[in-house]
Simulated assay, not measured.
Amino acid sequence: MKTYVSKNYTPANAWDALDIANFSGTSVRLHWTNQPYKWHINDGEEVFAVLDGTVEMHYREAGEVQSVLLNTGDIFYASIGTEHVAHPQGEARVLVIEKAGSI
């Protein structure tokens, strides 16, 4: 049993992560960031839950760039093959659930 207070997590570098759990090849990680990530495609599904802050998630759908603004409590699901990039609006903390070792 362990409790995590996400607002207390601020590592030295953007997108550093605190490993919460790893089960059956799935990782659960808490990320802090104040910088955009990079366009990427995960090698599995990904669940991206904003715990604190606001994140603009850009993704490609049928070759067109779309975006959605995620506020605290919002969740973005990226299916296999979804190219996407997260752009925090200031500081944000996000819980990411994905295949272990995914980028």
Rank of each mutant, 00 (worst) to 15 (best):
T33S: 15
A100R: 02
E83I: 07
F76R: 02
I103Y: 12
K7S: 15
D52G: 01
V96F: 10
T3R: 14
G81M: 06
G81N: 12
V28Y: 08
E45Q: 08
A21R: 02
Q66V: 03
I41R: 07
A21M: 08
G25T: 06
E56W: 00
H40Y: 08
I75A: 15
R60C: 05
T26V: 13
Y59N: 05
I80R: 13
E46M: 02
E98S: 13
F76I: 08
S6Q: 07
V85K: 09
T10S: 04
G90P: 02
Q89I: 15
G25L: 08
E61H: 13
W39G: 07
I75D: 05
V68H: 09
V94C: 10
H84N: 05
M1K: 11
A14Q: 01
S24K: 14
V47L: 07
S67M: 12
V68D: 06
G90L: 06
A92G: 02
I80Q: 11
T26C: 09
S79M: 04
Q35M: 12
R60P: 04
K99A: 03
Q35T: 10
E91L: 00
T54D: 10
M57L: 14
V5C: 11
L69S: 12
I20N: 01
T54W: 01
G73D: 09
H87M: 05
I75H: 09
E45C: 00
G81K: 06
W15Y: 10
H84L: 04
K99V: 01
A62S: 15
V47C: 03
S24C: 07
S67D: 06
W15E: 01
P11E: 05
G101L: 05
Y77M: 12
S102A: 15
P36M: 04
E56G: 02
N42S: 15
I41Y: 00
S102K: 05
I41Q: 06
A12C: 01
R29I: 11
E61S: 11
I80F: 11
G53Q: 10
S6E: 05
E98F: 00
Y77A: 09
A14K: 00
L70G: 01
T72D: 04
V65L: 09
P36C: 04
G73A: 10
Y77V: 15
W32C: 03
S27D: 13
V96A: 05
G81Q: 07
S102I: 00
Q35A: 15
K38C: 04
P11K: 09
D43H: 13
E83G: 09
L51K: 11
N13D: 15
N71K: 14
V65I: 15
D19N: 11
S24D: 13
L18N: 05
